[in-house]
Amino acid sequence: MPNHDVVNLSQIARMAGVGRAAVVNWRRRHGGLDATGGTAESPTFPLAAAEQWLRALGRLPQATPAEPATLTFEGGQMVTAYVPDLRVPGPGDRYDRYEEFGGYIAAEGRDGIPWPRASVRIDVPGQTPYEVTDANVDISYAGGTWQYLSLTWPAPRRQLLAITPTTTPTKER
């Protein structure tokens, strides 16, 4: 069973919305985040210390992003994902067979999310809603105000949904 009170460099990078290399550079440049476990290549850190460090650097996401996405899991569980991000790889991308959706959810929002796989409808304002069947579910860290929810799936499992109008237009005479 994973220890959700400990994070590695990749998980800290997800918290900040950057790549792992950026976190390595910040540690070299600013210091202040000491490993408490892991290995030299993959150190681990207390989650609370990592969050405090990122906050001090001004690298945690805004608490109330403008346009959150709504995720509705099979079975009816609804979750709001802030700073939503759909990654669809382009030609020549190393991971060209998989797509990924990620977003920050409130810590209490993780209860009831199916794990390790789920089917989900994703509604992002201004975009066509879509469904994904049998996505891999990962919640990268826990214990703080925010958690990072990541869903990955093979590209053919994403299906765009028809937009249904909320009102029926009336015919003028």
Rank of each mutant, 00 (worst) to 15 (best):
N8H: 05
I105M: 04
R87S: 15
Y130I: 03
A35E: 06
G144T: 13
G126P: 01
L161W: 03
M1G: 13
D134L: 03
A118S: 07
D134W: 00
E67W: 13
A50C: 02
A22R: 06
N8S: 07
P129M: 07
G143H: 06
R14N: 13
T72I: 09
L9I: 12
Y98I: 12
V7Q: 02
L161P: 12
P65H: 03
P89A: 02
H4M: 14
E172I: 12
G31L: 04
G19C: 13
S140D: 14
V137P: 11
A107I: 08
G38K: 00
P125A: 10
R28M: 14
A40F: 02
A162P: 15
R27S: 10
R94N: 10
R157Q: 12
V88D: 03
E131R: 11
R29E: 15
P68A: 00
P2N: 12
A48Q: 10
L86P: 00
G76N: 06
A49G: 09
P46T: 05
T152R: 04
L149M: 00
P114S: 09
I12L: 04
W146K: 13
Q11T: 12
D96H: 10
T39D: 02
T152P: 03
A48H: 06
I163Y: 06
G109P: 01
P43Y: 00
G31S: 05
R27D: 11
V23Y: 00
D5I: 09
G32F: 07
V7A: 01
E131A: 14
V23R: 01
Y130G: 06
G103R: 03
V132P: 09
V79C: 01
L57A: 07
A49P: 08
R55F: 06
D138I: 11
L60A: 10
